[in-house]
Nucleic acid binder design. Sequence first.
DNA 1: TAATCTTCTTGATAAATGTCAAGCCCTTTT
DNA 2: AAAAGGGCTTGACATTTATCAAGAAGATTA
Lengths: 194, 194
Amino acid sequence: MYDILLTYISQRSVTPITAEQAVLIRDAFKPKKLRKKQYLLQEGDVCKYLSFMVKGAMRQYSIDEKGNEHIVRFGIEQWWMADRESFEMQTPSRYNIDAWEETELLQISRSSYLSLRDAVPAVMEMTQELDKRGSIAAQKRIQAVISYTAEERYLDLLKTHPYFLQRFPQHMIASYLGISAETLSRIRKQALSK
Amino acid sequence: MYDILLTYISQRSVTPITAEQAVLIRDAFKPKKLRKKQYLLQEGDVCKYLSFMVKGAMRQYSIDEKGNEHIVRFGIEQWWMADRESFEMQTPSRYNIDAWEETELLQISRSSYLSLRDAVPAVMEMTQELDKRGSIAAQKRIQAVISYTAEERYLDLLKTHPYFLQRFPQHMIASYLGISAETLSRIRKQALSK
DNA sequence: TAATCTTCTTGATAAATGTCAAGCCCTTTT
DNA sequence: AAAAGGGCTTGACATTTATCAAGAAGATTA
């Protein structure tokens, strides 16, 4: 299962990974399995690990005063899961992260991560690439939310991340889009007749 | 005016800047002034420069089919302006960036930026720090848009970036919040009476 | 100074979306 | 097999927000 991670890193960096570095990487990451509905992180906890998803499906969400869940992010195979802010600053998280499907992870602690980044240039490069992509993607999503109607946002998600729609229930997709489950149901019905 | 930039970089990095490196930085950035309403970037253009704001106020926005502006980001002194995606990938931008106040910038081209980053560790560190903060901030804003009402988002902006409200007209603030100018006007009226 | 433009506000109305409640279907649990 | 729960849909209704139109106050331009 480490092969997936190694491949992932080398595909996202310029500097090749040496055999010695590969060992360092293997040693730094520990495997972890999560059952359905099991938490990776709960609100109030400090996010101690950065987790690479080998298999499964997860979601990151907050809960408001009324008890409603608001999904901020989905994750599936080959995505990283963590509350970035909590992980970087070591502050309590305002989010929950849990497994929607049986999930297999490779986890690294913050301190190991910092040393690994210094020891392996490819890891550093990958990280930067991820941050860059992350902020670009977030920017796009912000633009979508302030500019588009619920229907347009749904159609866009259908185009850009169709696998989300197949793996997560509709009420979660609705939450991710920032609309109610009923509204999404009606939008889908309407979109069919077009 | 370069002092502001040098101070900015050293405050956001660990490695100190040597005298030689300071010269490299000065040489890499060229000053540029923009009048009110002047474009830094227009939709369809490739974003050629990364611009550090020494003075002034700018906005980044898209325009939809109906001709409505949607403000994605504001910038004032000591902020960086650029369409990250267009700058990184050298693809045509979907955004406009223009000056709302008289603005003074320090600009660096992509190629100079890449070499400077390699030559000056502090610049590299600053960049990473910015990306990290950028994606954390964007994440928060996404959460706000999907979880909060228009009024809550306004009050949050009032708390976190009060200077925006003083320097940009309300209809732009409304656009940034993803609501109409009329709605913002009504929200403000209501908030006063509380 | 007069004319024009921009910003902000307000009212009336329309459209979008949320909320609540009920029911159906399917899966899981007992 | 029965019971329970989750997911999805639908209807009725409430709330939020957008849209259109008009006007006042101030700034900018001719």
